[in-house]
Simulated assay, not measured.
Amino acid sequence: MNQERIFQILRAPHISEKSSVVGDANNQVVFEVAKTASKPEIAAAVAALFDVKVEGVTISNVKPKLKRFRGRPGVRSGWKKAYVSLAEGEEIDFLDGATQ
């Protein structure tokens, strides 16, 4: 897999309270990924980019939300979320030690 496709698959880490709880309890990391990405592609991209061993990938499609803007209805776009299980002893630090 080429470097350009890796950056197309992995859009951003999804940092939230739920993802922090999942990460501490199950050694998982949550990413926002491209809608066209498959589980093997996500696993290969995370392994190549962060140099970690991936145990498994679970995917969730986040549905679009209906919102109003100045009284007019609108729709936020939906996106795909990937829960990546890392091998025992592996870790990804997005803050790069900034909290110390």
Score class of each variant (00 low, 15 high):
N2D: 14
R5Q: 10
R5W: 01
F7W: 10
Q8Y: 05
Q8S: 11
L10K: 09
A12V: 04
H14Q: 06
H14V: 09
E17G: 13
E17I: 02
S19Q: 07
S20G: 09
S20Y: 08
V21E: 08
V21W: 03
V22C: 08
V22P: 00
G23R: 01
G23D: 03
D24P: 00
D24N: 10
N26H: 14
N27K: 09
V30S: 11
V30E: 06
V33I: 08
A34T: 04
K35A: 08
T36P: 00
K39A: 13
E41R: 12
E41I: 05
I42P: 10
A44H: 13
A44G: 13
A47W: 02
A48L: 14
L49N: 07
L49T: 12
F50Y: 15
V52H: 00
V52G: 03
K53G: 01
V54S: 08
V54F: 09
E55I: 02
I59V: 15
S60C: 12
N61V: 15
K63I: 09
P64E: 03
P64N: 02
L66K: 15
K67C: 04
K67P: 02
G71C: 07
R72F: 06
R72G: 05
P73R: 01
G74Y: 02
G74V: 03
V75Y: 13
G78W: 02
W79S: 12
S85D: 06
L86D: 06
L86A: 04
A87M: 09
A87F: 10
E88S: 14
E88L: 04
E88C: 06
G89C: 01
D93V: 00
D96H: 14
G97P: 10
T99I: 13
